[in-house]
Design a binder for these strands. Structure first.
Lengths: 207, 207
DNA sequence: TAGATTACCATACAAAAGTATGGTATTTTT
DNA sequence: AAAAATACCATACTTTTGTATGGTAATCTA
């Protein structure tokens, strides 16, 4: 059994988790001191020793940023879901996060990617279902056949992308939905990004 | 256009990618020097400057381990798939990696997790399909209703876990497959781990 | 062939980072 | 009430880390 952390220690551990899993790199003592407004690194040092003694982290002596998390249960980091995206009919995309998922492992994404939750069933033949989280990278060039997120008149859709001579076709896997054809003069059309993966947490289906 | 890297620079960049995406933390100059057998950090320093000038990394001055990758295409790290796992009928699990996936983002998993590729369709009602990669954590306690990977007579299965009074039931979503009932005296049964998530790369389906 | 790039070396230094030690005040536990 | 743990402070010290500078040799390029 692990000993309980104090409030301060818990705050520091949360910061560590946030940095390590979110930002990808453990902070230095100075970073932590700075974040919490401590005047000395020694204060942080002592807290870390206490946290380590209770078994929540492991430190590598003398190594800068040598902090490792040992608590697997804590390895879930809330990530913002920026909106919902229609695999079927277009839905509104929200400017701010509408929810968060707890990504495990998956915690570390390229910083330029973001997450959207899929609503609707037009991609069910591609095995993407309502509720799945798609990982979207806005900085890759869409290639034919890839699944993209696109904006059409302030609504977002997830569909397969096909570039033709003078038009772009967005195709649903599900034949119930007709392909959307966009010619070059279509103003309010924009490819938001490419779906580089999907993730589905098993937690919610359990029990 | 990015300038081409020399062989040495490429090796160093590969090491950087391996460390950053695989281990989760950028190395120090000393780490790199040590790995390549350089006597001086200055040598590494110069290579990094060259690599940065060519646009493959970004360095934050004076910050320890302040190396960032800029090359998105490289953000795919090969991860070993340790075997295939039957969602339908049991299949053999291999001791060594049988393949690798390029995990994007997802690159950073808890170190104690591993990947298995699903074969078969008995979980298709849970929306897990043949070819999907399941992320398995062997260090979590299985709870009822969670999807687990279990070993039964040297074969592995992915099924829902239900612990009852004196027996454990492994249930497929697909009614075509009957539940497997294990009583306490079943010797060669072992829960390998819990499926904490599934990942599916979109790349292969594209084009 | 002169100049640039590459691939290393060495020494030197400043800043960052981790550590050690000792102190004070408050709270918690025994 | 005494002991222990917590939560901070300060100063001082050692390593680690990054950087600057200069040098040598080999290769590539104009």
């Amino acid at each position: 059994m692990r000993k309980e952390l104090t409030e301060t220690q818990k705050n520091i551990l949360d910061f560590l988790i946030d940095q390590i899993k979110g930002k990808g790199i453990p902070p230095t003592l100075a970073d932590i001191a700075n974040y919490f407004g401590y005047a000395n690194r020694a204060t942080v040092q002592q807290h870390l020793q206490a946290i380590e003694k209770k078994g929540y982290i492991k430190k590598t002596p003398k190594l800068s940023r040598g902090i490792e998390l040992t608590l697997e249960d804590k390895f879930f980091v809330p990530k913002p879901i920026l909106g919902e995206v229609a695999a079927g009919n277009p839905l509104t995309i929200y400017p701010d996060a509408i929810d968060t998922v707890k990504l495990p492992t998956i915690a570390k994404m390229p910083q330029d990617s973001f997450l959207l939750r899929v609503k609707g069933d037009s991609l069910k033949d591609a095995y993407i279902f309502s509720g799945d989280i798609v990982i979207v990278n806005p900085n890759l060039e869409p290639k034919n056949g890839q699944i993209v997120v696109a904006i059409l008149d302030d609504a977002a859709v997830v569909k397969r992308f096909y570039k033709k001579k003078n038009e772009i076709e967005l195709v649903s896997e599900n034949p119930e939905y007709k392909p959307i054809v966009i010619d070059k003069k279509y103003a309010s059309f924009n490819v938001v990004g490419i779906v580089i993966g999907i993730y589905r947490s098993m937690d919610k289906r359990a029990g």
